[in-house]
Simulated scan of single mutants.
Amino acid sequence: MKTTVKELRLILTVDNLDELIAFYRDTIGLETSKEWREEEGNGIILDAGRASLELIDAKHAARIDQIEVGQRVSGPVRLALRVAEPIATATETLLDGGATSVAAPTTAPWSEVSRVKAPDGMQITLFATSTLAD
């Protein structure tokens, strides 16, 4: 028998919560599912719609970095967000919202892509198309 998973949630522990809420909610456009401000701690759950878990080995991670950035730069965790806007437009929106550029938009074998770094240091790949159905 196997477990039936109903939701995938990535949890980031951060020092600059308000700045990152502004970036992920207000700049990227993730919608608030739940938010709390308590003496015991603060947090927010931002809904990204469909979630998936992509598992790759170090060799494939190096290949992706080479294609998207030109060299190995990502750590063990990188976010990838499929966006509705053209990649250049979405990239500029994130840069205006506090991200820094890791690599300019380019065409990978699987999609148009761009790589930015969020204010918390998280690398984010923006991509246009997916093999997953909407």
Rank of each mutant, 00 (worst) to 15 (best):
T91Y: 03
T100E: 01
I11Q: 09
K2F: 01
D65C: 12
L10Y: 07
I28L: 13
S33C: 10
K6A: 14
T100H: 02
V83R: 13
P119V: 02
G97I: 01
T4A: 14
E92L: 09
A80V: 13
T3Y: 02
I87M: 00
L17Y: 02
D65Q: 10
E68Y: 08
E39A: 15
R63E: 02
I21H: 11
L46D: 06
D120H: 02
G49F: 09
L46F: 05
G43W: 02
E112I: 14
L17Q: 00
T125S: 09
V73F: 03
A51C: 11
S33P: 07
A118M: 08
S114E: 08
V14W: 02
A62M: 05
A108G: 09
V5T: 04
G49S: 11
K2G: 02
V69H: 09
A103G: 03
I45V: 06
E112V: 13
A118N: 06
S74R: 02
R63K: 06
T125C: 10
P105I: 07
L81Y: 00
T4S: 14
D134W: 06
S101P: 00
P109W: 08
P86F: 03
H60Y: 06
V116M: 02
M1C: 05
I44N: 00
G121R: 12
E7L: 10
A58D: 09
I21G: 10
P86Q: 02
V77H: 08
G75Q: 07
A99N: 00
S74Y: 03
G29S: 12
I124S: 04
V83I: 13
E39Y: 14
E112N: 14
T91G: 09
E19C: 05
G98F: 05
L95H: 08
T13Y: 08
A88K: 04
D18R: 03
T4C: 07
T100I: 07
R50H: 05
A133W: 15
E31W: 05
I44K: 03
Q71S: 15
L126Y: 02
R9F: 10
G41S: 10
G75V: 15
K34R: 08
R50D: 04
I87C: 04
L53E: 08
S130E: 01
I28Q: 04
A62N: 03
E68I: 11
V83H: 15
L10D: 06
G121N: 11
E39W: 13
R37M: 01
E38N: 10
T100R: 02
S33R: 12
Q71L: 15
P86W: 01
V83E: 13
E85V: 07
S74M: 04
S33K: 12
V113G: 01
L8R: 03
I124D: 08
A62Y: 06
L10P: 04
D15G: 09
A103Y: 13
I67G: 04
A48N: 05
T107R: 10
T129V: 01
T27C: 10
G75E: 14
G70H: 15
E38G: 12
A62C: 03
Q123C: 03
A99Y: 00
E35D: 05
S101T: 05
P105G: 11
P86S: 06
P119W: 05
L8S: 00
I64H: 04
A128K: 03
A128W: 01
E35K: 09
T125V: 13
K6N: 14
S101M: 11
R78T: 14
N42E: 08
T13K: 07
A88E: 03
L12K: 15
